[in-house]
Design a protein around this nucleic acid. Sequence first.
DNA 1: CACTCTCTCCAAAGCGCTTTGGGTTGAATC
DNA 2: GATTCAACCCAAAGCGCTTTGGAGAGAGTG
Lengths: 348, 348
Amino acid sequence: MNLKQLSESLGLSQTTVSRALNGYPEVREATRLRVLAAAQAANYTPNVKARHLATGRAMAIGHVMPLTGREELVNPIFADFIAGAGEVYASEGYDMLLSMVSVEGAEAAYRQMASNASVDGVMVQAPTMDDPRIPLLQGLGLPFVVHGRTGSPEGYSWLDVANIRAFRRATEFLLDLGHRKIALVNGQETLDFARRRRLGYEQALAARGITPNPAWMRTDIMTEQFGYRSAVEMLEADDRPTAFLAASIIPAIGIRQAAGERGLRLGRDVSVICHDDGLSYIGNEGIRTPEGPAFTATRSSIRAAGKRCAEILLRLIDDPTQPPIQELWETDLTLGRSTGPAPAPASA
Amino acid sequence: MNLKQLSESLGLSQTTVSRALNGYPEVREATRLRVLAAAQAANYTPNVKARHLATGRAMAIGHVMPLTGREELVNPIFADFIAGAGEVYASEGYDMLLSMVSVEGAEAAYRQMASNASVDGVMVQAPTMDDPRIPLLQGLGLPFVVHGRTGSPEGYSWLDVANIRAFRRATEFLLDLGHRKIALVNGQETLDFARRRRLGYEQALAARGITPNPAWMRTDIMTEQFGYRSAVEMLEADDRPTAFLAASIIPAIGIRQAAGERGLRLGRDVSVICHDDGLSYIGNEGIRTPEGPAFTATRSSIRAAGKRCAEILLRLIDDPTQPPIQELWETDLTLGRSTGPAPAPASA
DNA sequence: CACTCTCTCCAAAGCGCTTTGGGTTGAATC
DNA sequence: GATTCAACCCAAAGCGCTTTGGAGAGAGTG
């Protein structure tokens, strides 16, 4: 069933039917209702491709899910982010075009999306400090929103969490508990957010006159095994940290496991704070006892971020004169069962 | 730059240029090279929508990522599955159209994809025993592949792991270690795979004359907190299991946490076997010591499954006469550090 | 009553591509 | 030298929709 057939069955022109369906005012209300009823009855939906050819709008948003590392690992964080964004797209009638490519291939993917106009805008995730995708997209004139930001976050739309503050605060909290040997199990520091988190950590230490120990600062893809291995190495060294700061709940789980295997109890022998993105299946909030969730954590819902980024992007698409929209979200520091006072030096 | 401009700049007709670019034989090799060079120089890529309008093919595959539960949780498993599939699509020039909807909305999503021909085929994930999407898609005539299968898996293409055998084998392994009190922390049993896993578990118990204890059989969305809570409840009861069988590594992590908090060591005081989908960030294989990975697990890469499902789907699309392709993958049972002989009854 | 609007509706062009159904041309064939 | 046949190339017709530029019919106005 296409427009032509539908209009013939109604004894109307294609123009009128099209206008009736798209809510234009040049059609009598009675006619519109008749058209809508007929469309409904015939189970008619306009051919998206034809419409796009005619309008030039793709009614689709491009997402590029970066696969990190040589193994092209897929971060579950993106699934939740996409879920949030997808919700918005669906409600506004947009499709989501997903491209999974290695970090190196991302640029080409965006370039292609732009060149054949298969999307009306794109979402940029996990930017590096000086991400080449941003000037690229600006040059291509394709609307985009960055989740996170770069070193010089001007002239484009982004949404980010206050990473420096979050990790400074978390570090201060550990310092207040008497910890002096604090390890940072960070994400890849080529990524801007990880760099900022390290800054926050270093600032807090510096404010108390503590020089960070390079052996206690690890940076890599935020897998469970990365957390595990980092913790194993640090806990088996002669001088070991009494607290860990993890960039995600996933490495934090690895740290917990490493500690547990060595008979160290979280919150008593070793403290752990992680950033909690509120992941669906491994959200920290879920495991809540009267004493709080499992991990003390800086919290910010990645799904809510996805949703908001999508809203911003659609606004940008709707109104090309819209100036850049930038939002900085604060995180909560929620107390859980994984932190406690630093153990007495004798036992460490 | 469009076809018309390109052909004018070359002094050729649109027909010839189009044919040259698409590899038809009616064009001289010299001309083809000239055309290709010009296209390259002009950075020309054909407008996808126009092409689709003309050919009727969308060059896109629809994925519907089911969000489960009232909270619409997104299972990280799907991210890895999609990564595998996406790899294949990209290499064959297909786009991936992703729709995130609640389980109830999935049918409508598929129906829409079919009705406006925005995709050439769809992927069906997480089927229930008697999934309505299958007759729906058959009726719509849209090629599809099911990851998993239904109660009566005939007449359509699917790829599944041998869930019954996997869980029977895992249960037998625990029985061989002397465990008699084995709990099953399963996925939602409306889903076919979960039902099959329970069957495997029950068969193994029945073969040794053991009646399953309903209190030790849990079924829900496979989150970490589900694993945690289930384990807490069972471990705090008077009669507690000595071993757990978990449907995913994620609830298994919750179980481990619950056990650890109670001073129970995995592989010594409590045994755990889980199914390991080889997730990128929380893959069991990663945390490997000389004694093996953290969990004893039935293993099957979800990413490889995604890849293979995509290959099958593209084959189906390429050749409509292709009869259904069905593949049953066996799992490995790999020994990890989470299992050991059943503790002496006195200590239990 | 002629004229001007406003309301409704329509014919046709156009979006950029593929593909059908020929045309030309030059070489090979009889 | 006429005929046949590849080999190349082209004009034009769609694909299904939106949108421009009217046209016709009543209603309102002087």
